[in-house]
Amino acid sequence: MNKPLFITFEGPEGAGKTTIIQQLNKELKNHSIPFVSTREPGGIDIAEQIRSVILNPKNTEMDGRTEALLYAAARRQHLVERVLPALEEGKVVLCDRFIDSSLAYQGFARGLGIEEVFSINQFATEDRMPDMTFYFDLSPKVGLERIEKNNLREKNRLDLEKLDFHQKVQQGYRQVLDRFPERIVVINAEQPIDMVYNDVLQVLKERLFKD
């Protein structure tokens, strides 16, 4: 039986996380590995409702602390309702974003403090962290250009932020990488998407795909 793993995917807007996760879903099915594929904020009904509030482009007056607390609340419900039960059943969990996003976006880019936001999330998750995280490294400018070209992508409130905000997000992620080097694998997301996928797959082969 495969060991249950909680694998998260992080990176700036437009980094290609969703596409890679969709491809990994097929790979896991081909190897008959039980898994759950989910996202944050969201993944279950209550968290999806909170997501609609956080990312609604009309909610431009939302305070930074309100935003951080809403993310933590959605994360808590998603964790106890979806992630932990799946892990207890021996499944692999692929999750698009988790705590690291809050540290980079709200902790650093919003100026709330990485330690302060980490503390909120430690309470929300009871210190549950991912087993492995892929960070898709991408220039903020390139990411925003990709978003602009993708008519099928959900346009949300964070997409309305200017380039300097997304540059701060990248700086925030750099601090997160320094903090958790043993957990986070950096992937060059400026490559063609098939090369990005191959890089992720090579890392996972040692952990999951054992013929």
Rank of each mutant, 00 (worst) to 15 (best):
K3T: 15
L152V: 11
G90M: 09
R179H: 11
E10P: 01
V185A: 05
N2W: 10
P4A: 08
D194L: 11
F108C: 05
C95G: 05
L160G: 12
L138I: 11
L69S: 07
F123H: 10
Y197C: 05
Y197T: 09
Q202M: 10
L55G: 01
F123D: 02
I7Q: 04
Q202C: 10
A47Y: 04
V200I: 00
A109R: 02
P85K: 11
H166L: 05
R174N: 13
L84A: 13
S102C: 07
K29Y: 04
F165V: 15
P12Q: 13
N56H: 15
V92W: 04
M129T: 15
V93T: 04
Q191W: 04
L204P: 00
N2T: 14
N56L: 10
E190C: 03
E154L: 10
V142F: 12
E40F: 10
A189Q: 08
C95R: 02
T133W: 00
V93D: 03
L70C: 03
V92A: 06
K58C: 09
I46F: 08
I193L: 11
E48L: 10
N188K: 01
S139Y: 00
N198M: 15
Q49S: 14
G143W: 08
I7V: 04
Q22N: 13
N59T: 02
N121E: 06
Y197A: 15
I54S: 00
V142D: 06
Q167W: 09
V142M: 07
Y135C: 01
E67P: 08
L112H: 04
K3F: 06
E67D: 12
V169R: 07
T38W: 03
D131E: 08
K17C: 00
K91Y: 08
L204Y: 02
P34S: 03
K162E: 11
E88F: 07
Q22H: 09
R146E: 06
R128K: 15
I54H: 04
S102R: 01
K168L: 13
V53M: 08
R39C: 04
T18C: 00
A86T: 05
T125N: 03
I184H: 01
K168C: 02
S37D: 12
I193E: 07
D178Y: 08
E116K: 15
T133G: 11
D164F: 11
K58A: 12
L69G: 07
G107L: 03
R76F: 10
R82H: 11
K162W: 06
L87G: 14
E190R: 09
K26W: 08
G143F: 11
E154Y: 12
L24T: 03
H78K: 04
E161T: 06
L28C: 04
V176G: 01
E40A: 08
D96N: 06
A109L: 05
L5Q: 10
K149T: 11
E148V: 15
D96P: 02
D211P: 12
T133K: 01
K205V: 06
